[in-house]
Design a protein around this nucleic acid. Sequence first.
DNA 1: CATAACTTTCAAATATTATTGAAAATTAAA
DNA 2: TTTAATTTTCAATAATATTTGAAAGTTATG
Lengths: 166, 166
Amino acid sequence: MEYSEAKERYIEAWGSLGSSWGVNRTMAQIHALLMIATEPLSTEEIMEDLKISRGNANMNIRALLDWGLAKKVLKPGERKEYFATDKDPMVLATQVAKERKKRELDPIIRLLEEVSAVQGEGKEVKEFKKVTADLKGFAKQADSVINTFIQSNSNWFFKILGKITR
Amino acid sequence: MEYSEAKERYIEAWGSLGSSWGVNRTMAQIHALLMIATEPLSTEEIMEDLKISRGNANMNIRALLDWGLAKKVLKPGERKEYFATDKDPMVLATQVAKERKKRELDPIIRLLEEVSAVQGEGKEVKEFKKVTADLKGFAKQADSVINTFIQSNSNWFFKILGKITR
DNA sequence: CATAACTTTCAAATATTATTGAAAATTAAA
DNA sequence: TTTAATTTTCAATAATATTTGAAAGTTATG
């Protein structure tokens, strides 16, 4: 396969994968581009490569910075901003886990805390309490696992992989 | 909190959570409803409770069946179809993991297999090969973990939780 | 300060995705 | 077979999300 074709397919796939991971298509594509870049890229270069507008590029670069998935790189003597990403997949996974936990798991646990304390004695209410309490318990276990994952170094994953498959 | 308020908030939250987990809002809301139902529900009951059209209800019930997140229940002597879901959060998690693996992880691994075999010797090509190979390796490890998770019984989660937090 | 380089904003335009509802299809019972 | 209950389909519509691009904002430099 030609490099240009491979690159195109990889960026497109990463983009659609991104959508199902809570980051929008363009954001994921910019990330994909930074992953394979041999040096930091400027907004202009990103615009050109992905054929997107300045506004779009700017917005999504900000979002990547916000998610901790890209960082600003300043070249000495240059005014323009360049961007780069950490290329270790584990760092990526950790960062995504951290952000999604904050944006999704934490709020749902808080909500389940609230609604599982509902008043009443009827059959429906009892079932509701049981189900939401079970979900809350599960969500908290998931939270523990994710916290452990986030806090530990990049060998963690492979260490437990060893343990559980032994 | 009143039951009606708690129920509303829970269904709304589950719906928006769903979006970020690859299932659409209505699909997640129907699932939420089935989770707290004390008996199987008909399409009519779902339409009424969530105030959605027949077409919408039907489509999303099919999608839930397709994801393995709901099952048909036939009441003897009745023609109408009823639907129910497994209420164990672990069963839910397993099912979602299984489907998302099939829909997302498996395809991306296949793509990475292909594109990491790109031809060429330049700096860009070398970097591309390295990055995509790393991603592929990571994706395969993730695949192992998920497979173990899917195959094992519901105690698995707590067992490894014990191991890794020890 | 004035200018130019660069970044950010945001209202309007587009594109994408979800929803409706009525008609068509299916199926069970009469 | 006919009828009626039920489910499915799908084109039209509505809702949501993304993208554009030009104007406004910012900041370094002469």
